[in-house]
């Protein structure tokens, strides 16, 4: 049995013939679409390394069946930068050293982008920490991550102000 599924991945619409309904969104990206930026740290929704945006919302792609997301719009870490031009969150992660081994980093960045879009944190570091607590980092880069998210958020707001003005 084959299941036809249409997904938009990083702006490109793809129609896929899935031979197996068990394929998770994460395994689809990693093993079948060569989008290996999203990482598998636990495969059980407990580490956040697989975080992607689905229809603009951050979720754990390891617990999402691809077939169930027919029609979804998916943004992965590969779709965030414009060529050499990094997304402000990516640039801020480098500037604040919000990474060490880098394995959790794609998930952290997608989570941070989702968090900023959710608009719930203000400039409160405590809310950012709580909002980023679904992404484990064994290296312990948390303080850099928090600083990066706060800075990236400011730069977004700056951009928005300029656009309004």
């Amino acid at each position: 049995m084959s299941f036809s599924t249409t997904l938009t991945v990083n702006g490109v619409s793809r129609t896929l013939a899935l031979d197996d309904p068990r394929v998770t969104l994460l395994d689809l990206l990693r093993e079948r679409l060569d989008l290996t930026g999203s990482k598998k740290g636990c495969d059980r929704g407990q580490c956040g390394a697989c975080t992607v945006l689905v229809d603009g919302r951050r979720i754990n792609s390891c617990l999402a069946l691809a077939i169930s997301h027919d029609g979804a719009d998916i943004l992965t870490i590969e779709g965030v930068a414009h060529g050499e031009q990094l997304h402000p969150v990516q640039a801020a992660f480098i500037a604040h050293d919000g990474l060490q081994c880098g394995f959790c980093t794609p998930g952290q960045i997608m989570s941070a982008i989702g968090l900023i879009q959710e608009g719930q944190t203000g400039h409160d570091p405590e809310r950012v920490r709580e909002g980023m607590s679904g992404n484990l980092c064994r290296c312990g880069a948390y303080s850099g991550i928090t600083a990066a998210v706060l800075e990236a958020q400011l730069s977004f707001e700056e951009t928005e102000r300029k656009q309004v003005a």
């Binding site: 990693r30 093993e31 060569d34 989008l35 290996t36 930026g37 999203s38 990482k39 598998k40 992965t76 870490i77 590969e78 965030v80 930068a81 990094l86 990516q90 640039a91 992660f93 480098i94 500037a95 050293d97 990474l99 880098g102 394995f103 980093t105 794609p106 960045i109």
Partner: peptide, 21 residues
């Protein structure tokens, strides 16, 4: 200096072992 591998890591382009196929 900031991490020289930072760009690869924040864009998902850093290839870890299991990313090979």
């Amino acid at each position: 200096l900031t991490r020289r591998d930072g760009f690869l890591k924040v864009t998902g382009a850093a290839r870890y072992a299991a990313d090979n196929h």
